[in-house]
Every structure is written in structure tokens, then in C-alpha cells.
Write a protein that binds this DNA or RNA. Structure first.
Length: 512
DNA sequence: GGATCCGTTGTAGCT
DNA sequence: AAGCTACAACGGATC
């Protein structure tokens, strides 16, 4: 019996999963074998616990849904994918014919893929299918190899690109593909693999139980959770979706539930592939069809188009995740790696309550408000600390539950000011937002800072963003002396901002 | 080909 | 208190 492997990688779901559909439709495989492969030591080294927890929960959910639908468990293995595939190929017990997985251009995935290809080269009868349009709305390989392709840098570019690929219908909506239904299984599951791969079997439930319990991690992983949240935050919130505008959705988290984001909170589900971007697009479109709605770049569809832009760019631009030999990254003379600066920033001990609140939220929950991301990345790089964007990128990658290689690198390129996006380098975010700042919705409600920086909970709002300016009696009254109970600002923000602006300008001049 | 416009989301100070 | 202006001046696309 020929076996076709469904190798789940970045799409931990059954809905709108082309990998699943293609495998079940293939005439070359008579039985199927669903696999997920992780490398525990690698996973633990590069991800904090919130992310690992989210992954385990997603795998448990996928397993349960797969079992309910297809009558068999998902097989989760711990090891190097090349060793595992070698084992499967060498076994006499299993007649492997095809491997189906989702297309990815993440460096780790490409490395694993290349290893697999070299193994398969010795077994010409086994075919590897890389399925496109699983986690993106477009076929990014096809898009970037088109003759007239130019890397998109603005929303206008993306609108042009979408108009060509998905001509608008009479109502003005792009003809994005319909999400795929979960297919009916017409094939038996290959049940005899456990003997072959027994050394690699990974007990997800057990591993999850070993993780720490006191995590503030807010999002629960899994497709089931994604579908519930999609319904709760999109489908049944039509007015919110139709009016969606990024700058106007800044707000502190609700006092009664400080961990729940004001925005949809769907990003972790997108990055783990628990949710199809196509499904989110179409649910949003349903809301749009009922009345007036915002337009890109600010609208919900606009957000998904930016996501798509980064997927395309990360494939088109060599060395997307590096500042070397990256055609979209200006090489700025960043300061040498400064361990103490990085630690203060990462631990939320900079002495800037807004920055510290955001960084502590990131550490505790794995999530941060998008404008917080702007503020802390600007602060770390061109704004105040003059540290290399790659350092901040690494921290975000390790801690953000919604970290996505293409998006995370793209956003750091953008916010640090090195990419040719619309971010004039002199436009800095104020780490101490006051009532006049565009961040003022957040600033007016200082509860956010009080929750995450409880040392300052008794400070009057007037001083909460720059507590070192509070007169001594006020500090004493709030039982938090700056310099003793909460740090002094680690830099004079205005002085360093001015210096950094000059350095950035000087660096740019040498590039001309 | 030089001028002008525009870009998902700036800030500070003044009236 | 909302709105204007200055700040300092990017870089690619378009006219």
C-alpha cells in the first residue's frame, strides 16, 4: 500500500488546508500518514514558554480534530526531520510514495527541505509536493517570478498586484479563492508506522503538563480556539470590522480583563497556521458586503495585504533577515552590542514606564499592542538606544506568540528606518506619550501602565509616563521613589534622540 | 530631468 | 481643546 505523508509544518489546521486536500486527492497514495516533526532542544532554545505552550496546545487540538474527522491520531515526532525521513524511507515496512507539505521560505524550513531533497534524490520514486497558497493569499513563488515583478513597497503596489491576480467583482471585491472545506476522507490511515519511528515519538500532552503553570499566556493554541475567536471578534463584530482603522483602535486593554487585546487577537493563530488568512479575508468580506467599510491601508483587508506584502518580499529579497547583502536594508553604523542596554530593554527596566509596560506584557503574555511594538522598536534602535535592529528582532522572535519570520523581519526593517518604506528616519515615537501624542488614547488611560508596572500604581496620571519628573512629596505619597523603587530613565531621551538622528544621517551620507 | 508629491499610524509648541 | 505649524528634510514615483 503506497503511503502519502501529510507533513504539517506551518498550517496546524484542517480548514482551508490545501496540503490535506491535495494529499487526499492524490491517486498515487492509497493510505495517508499525518506527521508533525519538532526538535525539542531547538524549540526550547529559540522560543520562550508561551510560544512552546501555544504550539503544544495547537498540536493537541489538531490531533483531536484529525482523530474526530479521520479516525486516526496525528503523529508527533521529536528529532531532526532528515533522520526521521531517512528512517521512514529505509524501512521495509512502509512503501512511501509522496510527501505533501506547505510551501515555506523560512530559512529553517528551507534547510530541512534541502536535506529531505537530498535524501529523496536517492529514492527517485518518492515525490515531494510543496503546496502553495496555504498560509498566504497569493502563490508567492509565482508572484515573484513573474516577468514584470517589482518588489511591492506600498499599499498602492499591493492593490495593483491584487487587481491583476484577483480581478475585482461587480461589488468591488477581489476574487480571492474560496476557502477549502475539510475534505471527506476516502483513504485509510497508515497505522503501522509506530514500530519504525518509535524512538522519535513525542507525547505532547505530557510535555505540556511539564510546562510552568503560572504563565500569564493569554492565547490558547489550536484551530478550535481560532474558529471561536474568529466568530467572536470578526463574524459577530460586523460594525467593528467595517470601521476597522488601526490608529483608532489604540486603547488600553479592558480593565476587567487586562490580558485581552482590543484588536482581534488573531495574529498568533495566523502565525501558527491555526487560522487560514483566506478564511479571515472572507469573513471580513462578509461584513463589508453589509455596508460601508474602511479601505486599505488601514482596513482589515489592508492589514492582510501588508501581511501578504511581507510574505512576497521575504521571498523576493535575498537575505531578508539580515542587514548584510539585503537589498532592502540600509547599512547603518549601529552601536556595538551593549549587554546592559539590551537587558534593561528586554526586562522592562528602562525607566520609561510605557516602554517597560510593553516589554513586560510581551514577556508575560507573548503579545504586545502594535503601537507598543512601534514604540519599543523605535526606542531600541534609531530613537534612544542605538542598538542593532537584529537584536530586537531576535527578542521578538523568541517571545512573540505571533512571531512570523517574514513579518517580524519586515517590521523591524521598517521601524528601525533601514528599509525604503515610508518611515522618514527623523520621525520618532515618543517613549513618554502625553495627551497630545497620537498614542494619547493609551496615555489618557494610564491603567495599562499601572497594571504592568505596579510599582507606579499610585502615581497620578500626570506623572505616570515620566515619574522621575514628579516632585518628591508625590513620589513619597505614591510609595515609589524613582531611582530606588523604580529606575531613573536609562537615557536622556531628547539628548540621545538628537545624537542618534545625527548618526543616522551621517550613516546615510556614507551610503551615497 | 528637476520639481513635486506622497507614503498604514510623529512630536512639540503655540494659539 | 482642537488645530495649526515647525521640526528637518527620506526616497521613490510621477509629472
Amino acid at each position: 500500500m503506497n503511503v502519502g505523508i501529510i507533513w504539517f509544518r506551518n498550517a496546524l489546521r484542517l480548514n482551508d488546508n490545501r496540503v490535506l486536500v491535495e494529499c487526499l486527492n492524490s491517486t498515487n497514495s492509497q493510505t495517508i500518514l499525518p506527521l508533525y516533526i519538532l526538535d525539542k532542544s531547538d524549540l526550547e532554545q529559540n522560543n520562550n514558554e508561551n510560544k512552546i505552550k501555544f504550539l503544544y496546545e495547537s498540536l493537541i487540538d489538531l490531533d483531536a480534530n484529525f482523530k474526530a474527522k479521520f479516525g486516526s491520531n496525528l503523529i508527533v515526532l521529536n528529532g531532526k526531520s532528515k533522520d526521521i525521513f531517512r528512517k521512514l524511507l529505509d524501512s521495509d515496512l512502509l512503501d512511501l510514495s509522496e510527501i505533501f507539505t506547505d510551501y515555506s521560505n523560512k530559512p529553517d524550513d528551507i534547510e530541512n527541505e534541502n536535506n529531505l531533497k537530498s535524501i529523496l534524490a536517492e529514492n527517485a520514486s518518492v515525490k515531494l509536493h510543496l503546496i502553495s497558497k496555504v498560509n498566504s493569499l497569493t502563490n508567492v513563488q509565482e508572484v515573484v517570478s513573474q516577468e514584470n515583478f517589482k518588489p511591492p513597497k506600498t499599499m498602492k503596489d499591493m492593490e495593483k498586484l491584487f487587481s491583476n491576480l484577483y480581478p475585482k467583482d461587480e461589488d468591488g471585491f477581489y476574487s480571492i479563492d474560496k476557502p477549502l472545506e475539510i475534505p471527506e476522507n476516502s483513504k485509510p490511515i497508515y497505522e503501522n508506522s509506530s514500530e519504525i519511528i518509535k524512538d522519535y515519538l513525542f507525547d505532547v500532552k505530557k510535555e505540556l503538563s511539564l510546562l510552568e503553570k503560572d504563565s500569564k499566556s493569554y492565547f490558547k493554541g489550536g484551530e478550535s480556539e481560532a474558529i471561536i475567536r474568529l466568530e467572536r471578534k470578526v463574524s459577530s463584530e460586523e460594525e467593528y470590522i467595517r470601521n476597522f482603522r488601526k490608529p483608532r483602535t489604540i486603547s488600553t486593554n479592558k480593565p476587567e480583563n487586562p490580558l485581552e487585546p482590543e484588536t482581534t487577537g488573531l495574529s498568533p493563530y495566523l502565525s501558527f497556521g491555526c487560522l487560514s488568512p483566506r478564511l479571515l479575508w472572507k469573513e471580513t468580506e462578509k461584513c463589508y458586503r453589509n455596508g460601508e467599510h474602511t479601505q486599505p491601508p488601514e482596513s482589515m483587508h489592508g492589514q492582510l495585504m501588508f501581511r501578504e506584502m511581507f510574505y512576497i518580499l521575504s521571498r523576493a529579497v535575498e537575505n531578508w533577515d539580515s542587514d548584510t547583502n539585503n537589498s532592502m536594508c540600509k547599512k547603518i553604523e549601529w552601536g556595538d552590542f551593549d549587554k546592559s542596554k539590551m537587558e534593561l530593554w528586554e526586562k522592562g527596566q528602562t525607566g520609561f514606564p510605557y516602554i517597560d509596560a510593553m516589554m513586560r506584557q510581551l514577556d508575560a503574555t507573548g503579545w504586545m499592542h502594535h503601537l507598543g511594538r512601534h514604540a519599543v522598536s523605535c526606542f531600541l534602535t534609531r530613537g534612544q538606544l542605538w542598538q542593532h535592529w537584529e537584536q530586537g528582532r531576535d527578542v521578538f522572535d523568541r517571545k512573540l506568540v505571533d512571531a512570523d519570520w517574514a513579518l517580524n523581519n519586515g517590521n523591524w526593517l521598517w521601524l528601525s528606518g533601514v528599509a525604503p518604506f515610508s518611515m522618514p528616519y527623523f520621525r520618532l515615537y515618543n517613549p513618554c506619550p502625553d495627551g497630545k501624542s497620537s498614542l494619547n488614547v493609551e496615555a489618557k488611560n494610564a491603567e495599562f501602565v499601572r497594571y504592568w508596572v505596579p510599582e507606579l500604581k499610585d502615581y497620578p496620571s500626570k506623572y505616570i509616563f515620566e515619574p522621575h519628573l514628579a516632585p518628591t512629596p508625590i513620589q513619597e505619597n505614591a510609595r515609589c521613589i524613582i531611582g530606588k523603587d523604580y529606575p531613573e530613565p536609562m537615557v536622556d531621551r531628547k539628548v540621545v534622540a538628537k545624537e542618534n538622528l545625527a548618526k543616522f544621517k551621517a550613516s546615510l551620507a556614507t551610503l551615497k
